[in-house]
């Protein structure tokens, strides 16, 4: 895969995560409610998880867009997407009717949402495998 394509995927993935965080920031209470509706986490942990997810989305999105710590950020994003997919799938399999809370708005959770997350997971894996390791001092190794 060419360096240009890899860079485009990395930047697009980072921008998507920054966009996802930006749509949640105006209403973190609403996002916490969306998280609660998945009925996976204990209610007392839900607001902390909601706030943490947005913080992780911001930092990993920035890291991917700028290319600083791209590989760790891609791994983190992949882990986050696996968690999202598990949350979505269990809700759909249990017949829970809810909005996904992915990009703000009223988008319902569906298997289409799972497919979209799988596509993003594939992109994160590509970035994680293809990105060069960082050297000390922030420079990257040539591949």
């Amino acid at each position: 895969m060419t360096r240009l394509v890899l860079t485009a995927i990395r930047v697009a993935l980072g921008a998507l995560f920054l966009w996802a965080a930006a749509t949640k920031l105006p209403d973190l209470a609403g996002f916490a409610q969306d998280v609660a509706n998945y009925r996976v986490l204990p209610p007392i942990l839900v607001p902390y998880a909601a706030a943490a997810v947005v913080g992780i989305e911001i930092l990993s999105g920035l890291a991917l867009v700028t290319g600083a710590a791209a590989k760790p950020a891609a791994l983190l994003v992949a882990a986050l997407l696996v968690a999202f997919i598990v949350f979505l799938a269990q809700a759909l399999l249990r017949g829970i009717d809810l909005r996904c809370g992915c990009f703000g708005g009223d988008e319902p959770a569906s298997w289409w949402t799972v497919a979209r997350d799988l596509a993003m997971l594939a992109a994160a894996v590509v970035v994680a495998r293809g990105s060069p390791q960082q050297q000390q001092g922030g420079r990257t190794l040539a591949t």
């Binding site: 920031l25 209403d27 973190l28 209470a29 916490a32 609660a36 009925r39 209610p43 007392i44 902390y48």
Partner: peptide
Amino acid sequence: PRPAPLGAPVAAS
């Protein structure tokens, strides 16, 4: 603008 209520439980709707 609308922070998550840290410390308070949030149950499903």
